[in-house]
Structures are given as C-alpha cells and as structure tokens.
Write a protein that binds this DNA or RNA. Structure first.
Lengths: 232, 232
DNA sequence: TCAATAGTGTCTATTAGACAATATACT
DNA sequence: AGTATATTGTCTAATAGACACTATTGA
C-alpha cells in the first residue's frame, strides 16, 4: 500500500504582525523549558502540529493558532510557504506550513495573549535573534515578502482598525517602508486603487477632522500599477 | 511525547511548464489504473510522497520528481504553495507542497518522459479537465501566479533555451499574455531591467541576424517597475 | 532588386512626484 | 486670531506606448 511510507512531522507556524508603538512588531513565543522539547527556552514563531482531528485544513489550523494566541478571528491571512527537510527538527523529518497574518493593534499588548510566554517584538530585533528551528529563515522570508508587497499593494491597510484616515494609512506605509512618501501622490494612488470606502468623518486630537475609510474586501488586497518611486 | 500525533500524508506535486508548438503546455500524468489507487486513470500533476530516506528537503523532492519525468536538472523552480486538508485524498488527511518549474522546450516532446503515461497538454485544455485530487485548483493557482508575474517580471526568459533573441522573448510574452506588445517599449523594458547579457549574434531562417542573449542569473527573475499597460 | 526581420528614433499622452495653496478643525 | 492638520490644485519631469524609419540579412 502506498501510504505505508514513513510520514514526516507536519506543523503550522504563524507570523503575526501588528503595529505597536509606531513600529512593526511580531508575536513570538518562548519554547517550553523542558528537556524533552527541542530548543528549550528559545524564542520561536507560534505554531505546532497539525491536529488531524481538530483541523479541517492547514488554513483552519493557522486560524486556530492565531485565535489561541491573540483572540483575533478575522485577520488578513496569507500563506507564506512551506519549509521541510530532514534537519530542521531534531525529532525527525518535518515540514512546516508558514502563514502570515496582519492584525490591527491589540488594545493591551501583552494581555491579549493571556500568557507571559508570548511577546510582541520589533521585527528588526526579532530578525537579529537566533530563533528556534529554521524560524529565523522563515521570518526573513516573511519580511521580504511583506516589504516587497507594501511597495505595490494595499496590505498595510490591514494593520489599521477601521475607520482609519489617509494620513494614518500613509504613516503605516512610511513605518514599514522606512522612508517618507509624498502626501499628494499617496492620496491619488490610494483613492484611484478603489479598495477604500468612505466611512464618515473621524477627528483626531488636533487639527482638521479627516475622512475615515474602511477597506471594501478584507480578504483581498489591491495591486497598484507601479511601485513607489525611489528618490534619485 | 509531542510527536505521537497522528501524522498527515505528505506529498510534493510539480507543475512543469514549457513552450511547445507556439503554446504554453504543462506536463500531466495518468493515475495508475489499479483499484487500490485513488482517481484511477485520471490526469494528475506529477508528484508523490516525500521519501524521508531519499529526499533531504521538499525542494530536493521536487527536483527529483522533475528529473524523473523530464531529465531536466536545472530548471527555474519556485514554490507555489501548499494544500492540505482532510478531504483531498481519500486515503486520509494529506498535505501537498506544490512547486512550479519553467523549462525550455524539450527536443522530443513525449520521448523525454520515457513513458506514455505522461503528456504535454495545453494549459487552457488542462485547466478544463477534471484532474485528480485538488489538482485543478492547484493548476488554477499556478496559472494565476504565472500570468500575474509575467506582467511584471522576467519569468518567460526561463522558457527559452539560450541564447535567445529579443523578438523570441517578446513572442513568449505574447503567447503567455495572449496579447501583442509594442516592440520598442518591450526592448527598452527588457534591456533596462538589466537581467540579460549579450551572447553573440544568432541568425534565424529569414531576415536580419539578431543579438543573442542569456539571463545573468537563472535562479532569479527581474522585477519591472510597472506592469505592461493594458490597452484602453 | 525584393522580402523579411531586427533594431532605432521621434513624438505624445499620461502621470507620479514636488510643492504651494486652501480648507477645516480646536484652543 | 493662531496653530495644527487635512485636502486640493498646479506644474514639471519622466517615460511607456504608438508608430515611422533605418539597418541587415538571404534569395
């Protein structure tokens, strides 16, 4: 019978990004500090084995893990890729399916996770850490994908709670890209892309009140016809 | 022990694309016609179980299957994504890792596969077939990714054997996109992108001889700053 | 010479970005 | 009024696409 092959371990890992304190952060967890477990005490991506009884699909599994860690039920969720080889897990040949999620900033950063073993960490700092398994490599891939897509898609909108204003959205772009953008060109681009719908005026602490917006489809991002121009 | 979970089946499937007879084709195989196997006699993507003894990694597994089917050893290979749920394989909870490969046209189409159970099929025709497992869904995703990327990357260059000329490359773009492109704009774009290197003059059957080119890095594609403009 | 294809030049419509000007909020 | 922010308008430089023109091959 063909299913008699020795089966690899199958896991799902989730890269959960949010904007906290003006910075892009990712939720990491500490590996349990027990001798039986691999990488004890090391920071890692939240994740774990697929439960063939509980999880109807890989995506379901990712959603479950996200909900367990953050309580968020309807994030923007995208598959990042899979990593599988004989070496990445000392317990044996294993394959992990990585998803990345963009959520709006949780009100109380640590409290949402319910546990002290989870923590929001700035992405650059996380990228410098030596994470468990091949998670550093996976994080690097996620950041590359995210920063790449921010250049030509509406992804950053998923990091804001609605309604948000265009200046707020621009600020998110600037934080993720690490460079300032022109106000006028930015507005034209966002409005022309047609993924926003007006949601009434909102007023901030100072100055003129601004139009609030929400995204029309929270599962789908808009694609711009060009990337943002790099200053000469 | 945490590894006592019931493990899903793990497979790898490969979407192998090539340009044959002026059309984009994909290599499909027939499922064995034995009663024990799922989807007997149905067309499917080439692939199979990960062999934890033979395969050092998922990518290795994909390369192995590609080589077994086509003899090609150095294709452009990119991970497409993974599909896993309780229903897709009647033998049990299974997860497949899909890779897509772009290869230059094999000299003798059928012969390379060595077997009559494999066949090059036009992508549109393949997309209309009811393939085994969820392979129709995977093929649809691959075509969407491929056609999407052709709009703003140098991917089609991997479908040609080197050296190739710019008119040949333009023709590949036109076949995959299904619409004509302007010669002058096309050349400017390709040459400015800087992924080509000159490789001596090549002469075709008629007309003026043309400059031959090769890609500088066969693992990496170039990204253009804009998509091709859609006619108004 | 012609036919066929490769490669270049010129023009124009479009538009992203720079930046100035105006509008609206709060104190 | 004055300050702070949002929004709109104008100008300009860059450039993709349209298309005509020139160049080079073989017959």
């Amino acid at each position: 019978m063909t299913t008699d092959f020795k089966r690899p371990l199958v896991t799902v890992d989730v890269l959960i990004f949010a904007l906290l304190d003006e910075a892009l952060k990712i939720l990491l967890v500490r590996r349990p500090d027990e001798p039986g477990d691999p990488f004890p005490g090391r920071w890692a991506l939240p994740g774990g084995f697929v439960d063939v009884a509980k999880d109807r699909s890989l995506q379901d599994c990712a959603v479950r893990k996200l909900r367990e860690k953050t309580g968020v039920r309807t994030p923007y969720l995208e598959q990042l890729g899979s990593w599988g080889d004989a070496e990445r897990d000392p317990r044996g040949w294993s394959a992990t399916h990585a998803y990345f999620a963009l959520i709006d900033a949780p009100q109380r950063a640590g409290a949402d996770t319910g546990a002290a073993d989870a923590q929001w960490i700035q992405v650059d700092e996380a990228a410098r850490k030596r994470l468990a398994f091949d998670h550093s490599q996976i994080l690097a891939a996620a950041l590359e994908r995210l920063r790449g897509k921010v250049e030509y898609t509406s992804l950053p909108a998923f990091l804001l709670s609605e309604p948000f204003t265009l200046p707020q959205l621009q600020h998110v772009y600037e934080v993720v890209l690490g460079r300032p953008l022109d106000k006028s060109a930015f507005r034209k681009r966002m409005l022309d892309a047609g993924f926003l719908q007006e949601a009434g005026m909102v007023d901030g602490p100072f100055g003129r009140t601004a139009m609030g917006y929400g995204v029309i489809d929270r599962q789908q991002f808009a694609v711009f016809p060009r990337t943002f121009k790099t200053k000469p």
